[in-house]
Amino acid sequence: MRESTLWLFHLLAGAVLLTVLGVHYGVMHLSNLFGIDHATVLSFSSVSGRSGRFFYLVVYLVLLPAALYHGLYGLRSLIFELSFIGLVLRRWISRILILSGSGFLIYGAYAIIAGFLG
């Protein structure tokens, strides 16, 4: 895939992150904004309660790939720009990152869906 397409996704993932992290921040750190008590927001019942709601299923399923893509693309850029490596090694690094990212995505999506289904 062309670098411009990857870069465009990076920007879009950044925009998505800003939105869903805004939701996360509102729920987790701004007391009572969504009717949730700040003190109990991290208790097991609150976490599992949220996991079972459709709204959070969607939020987490959007957040997971966006965060993974944004982070791994950033990591790839850092490696390329700071490690003096040649083009062949670059290709391998991209492949490893795609594979590990896909693994994290499948595992994360499984956890989110399992949490939703209870």
């Binding site: 062309r2 411009s4 870069w7 390329f80 083009l87 991209s94």
Partner: peptide
């Protein structure tokens, strides 16, 4: 684009 839009191109 062949030269410019690669992994060592403009987006670095």
């Amino acid at each position: 684009l062949e030269a410019v839009d690669g992994p060592n191109g403009i987006f670095r």
